[in-house]
């Protein structure tokens, strides 16, 4: 790679390798494919909606990690309740 490319910084394949590995390792470690994670999210929304009012589009489900430990992190914003409190 020439110095021009280096200056432009647009050929950093190591960065791409790292980003791609980060994603693939998370799924390898949990045996959960991106597709399954999507299905999990849909079912979770369905179940939770039976109990509280949520906004399906705002729900986020992600795998995250700390060291070699994996976590399933869900962010589920609730809709402001319409029932007036007395």
């Amino acid at each position: 790679m020439g110095w021009l490319d280096r200056l432009r910084g647009n050929k950093n394949s190591a960065r791409q390798a790292k980003d791609r590995l980060q994603l693939v390792l998370v799924h390898d470690r949990t045996d959960l494919s991106p597709g399954q994670l999507g299905a999990l999210k849909d079912e979770l929304i369905e179940v939770i909606s039976r109990y509280v009012d949520i906004e399906p589009q705002a729900v986020e489900i992600q795998l995250s990690q700390s060291g070699r430990e994996q976590y399933l992190v869900a962010n589920i914003p609730l809709r402001p309740t319409r029932r007036a409190r007395r």
């Binding site: 790679m1 394949s13 070699r68």
Partner: peptide, 19 residues
């Protein structure tokens, strides 16, 4: 290769594998 940004560095690999 590491210097030119085309090979994962030791730090990258350690961060990925967490060992």
């Amino acid at each position: 290769l590491v210097r030119e940004g085309n090979m994962l560095d030791a730090e990258d690999v350690l961060e990925l594998l967490a060992i």
